[in-house]
Design a binder for these strands. Sequence first.
DNA 1: CGTTCGATGCACT
DNA 2: GTGCATCGAACGT
Length: 211
Amino acid sequence: MKALPRDFYARPTLLVVRDLIGKRLVHDTPVGRAAGLIVEVEAYIGEADPACHAAAGRTRRTAPLYGDPGFAYVYLNYGMHYLVNAVTEPRDAPAAVLIRALEPVEGLELMRTRRGHANRLSPSANDLSPDDRSLCRGPGNLTRALGITLAQNGADLCRSRLFIEDSDEVFPETAWGPRIGISVGTESPWRCYVAGHRSVSARNREQGSRK
DNA sequence: CGTTCGATGCACT
DNA sequence: GTGCATCGAACGT
């Protein structure tokens, strides 16, 4: 398969969110390829969205949000988790889609290795490797499983070794609900996920309105 | 089941 | 100095 074209991202963010479900996120690295099907995403749209990083205006950190669509916006959250977004909308319209969960489909062994020493908080739990469905459950977990770090910030999703491609997978059971982990902007139902999917992050796995 | 809480680094005020 | 688009261990029920 081929990486999705820039046109795919240069659209209203909620449409990109909808169409991203079931697509395949791939990261090729020197140690191998890891990939998964997107089952959970969230939209962050513009300076008027209080939960969007662009709400604080254009800074060095948020610069990628204002750039061309189809590029990655990666940042470090809580001092320990990298979160990956796909920039959407035309240049200068700051918006992006946060990738929150994947169903692992390729490079499972690599994912297990990368997740194996993931637990910095409790070294004693290191021997417990997460089971497959939780390898890419949650935005911090999936970046670790795919080896995505700040090095991928600004990467071109249309031309680099980090990309999103079409897939034959169809998830008809998609649902929408409030975004997770934020204290403002919770009134917007801009989280889209595959209802009941085992790789969707735990909270609200079943809730939300069907569409 | 449920909730609480500590780890941890950096952009931004 | 403050506040995170998180995670999982350690509780309580």
